Amino acid sequence: MSEPIPVDAELLRSMPLPFHGDDADKDERGRILVIGGSRAVPGALLLAGVAALRAGAGKLQLATVGSIAPHIGVAVPEALVMSLPESDEGEIAPDAAAEIAHRLGRCDAVLIGPGMLDEEAATAITVEAMGVDGPSFVIDAGALCNLRAEAKAMARHDGRIVLTPHAGEMAKLMGVTVKEIAADPAAAATRAAAELGAVVALKGGRTVIAVPDGRTWEYSQGQVGLATSGSGDTLAGVVAGLLARGAEPHEAAIWGVYLHGEAGNRLSQTRGPVGFLARELLAEIPAIMAGLAS
């Protein structure tokens, strides 16, 4: 395995994001659906959805449990909000999958997982969603951990799926220990990408992006302040927003990791190395993108 390619501004300028002219409308910038949230963790959906808009997506739809849907709609007035069947525990019910499926074909990108704690229900919804052709997918958090058994469903999307696990989720996904993942993140990400036929962004102090053909990239300039509640939701949302705009999956992952990390770097300078909030990352994203395009 060759050494990962460093992710920096020079690399990103060599893989520019899709261009949207001044006359482009919101449909041209892409439609994204984020499926997630629960009664216990409603904010994860909000963070991910707003992150997708900050990354430049044109239209946002959010799908979540009925008890929090009206509140999410008020908190994110830019979004269309779907109210889904809810389990007694406040999670999206597995039978919501069929209700979601009819919307997927009209989307350019779908993000599944932020704020979903019921892994069995999340897997059922994810598998149903992957039965629809058309959109690219980002799969995060609770929707990740049981996907190894669904490699056949993933393979039909020909690499247009991005997985965004942290070390604990990767260990569960691949049936190994966290210690093994931490010992060689690049090898772990490469193996997962090859076995699952997906782009893998393995989050950590060194974030590794791997694709099925064996290529890898690494971002190692992040700050400790990024290790905070909701940070992963913002990263997943940024990646999904870039996919909605038309970026290739590996490029969306590379750009998303860089934008997320550099947002943290900026906040570490203005707020301090720790103590900034995941929600504060969001407003930094557009200016960082604009700087790379200049």
Rank of each mutant, 00 (worst) to 15 (best):
L111V: 04
L226Y: 13
R106L: 14
K203V: 08
L47G: 07
K203M: 08
V41W: 04
L202C: 10
A171D: 02
V176I: 14
L80D: 01
L53R: 14
H102N: 07
A69V: 08
L12W: 07
G291I: 06
T177N: 06
I5P: 00
R206W: 09
G159V: 02
V199L: 03
A79V: 11
L277A: 11
D95N: 14
S294D: 14
D25H: 15
L33E: 12
I139E: 01
A9Q: 15
V211I: 15
R160F: 05
E218D: 04
V50R: 15
Q221C: 10
V50Y: 06
G222S: 08
V200F: 05
L259Y: 03
K152I: 14
S67H: 03
A236R: 03
M289H: 02
G232W: 03
H260I: 02
R160I: 00
H157L: 08
G105A: 15
L12C: 07
A192R: 09
G159T: 12
E91C: 07
L45Y: 11
A96N: 09
Y219D: 02
A96L: 09
G131V: 08
D140R: 03
T216M: 05
K152M: 02
G264Q: 11
L292R: 01
W217Y: 14
D8I: 08
A263L: 09
S229F: 00
R266I: 01
H157P: 10
E120K: 15
H157I: 07
R266M: 05
H250D: 06
A240W: 04
A290P: 00
A97P: 10
G37Q: 10
A194T: 13
P286R: 10
A141R: 11
P94Y: 02
L11M: 07
G142W: 09
R31I: 11
T190D: 04
D184Y: 09
E91H: 08
R156A: 14
E251K: 14
H20F: 12
H102I: 01
V127A: 05
P165K: 08
G241A: 08
Y219K: 02
G237S: 12
L47D: 10
S294V: 12
D27I: 03
I100N: 10
A153M: 12
P165R: 12
G230S: 09
N265M: 05
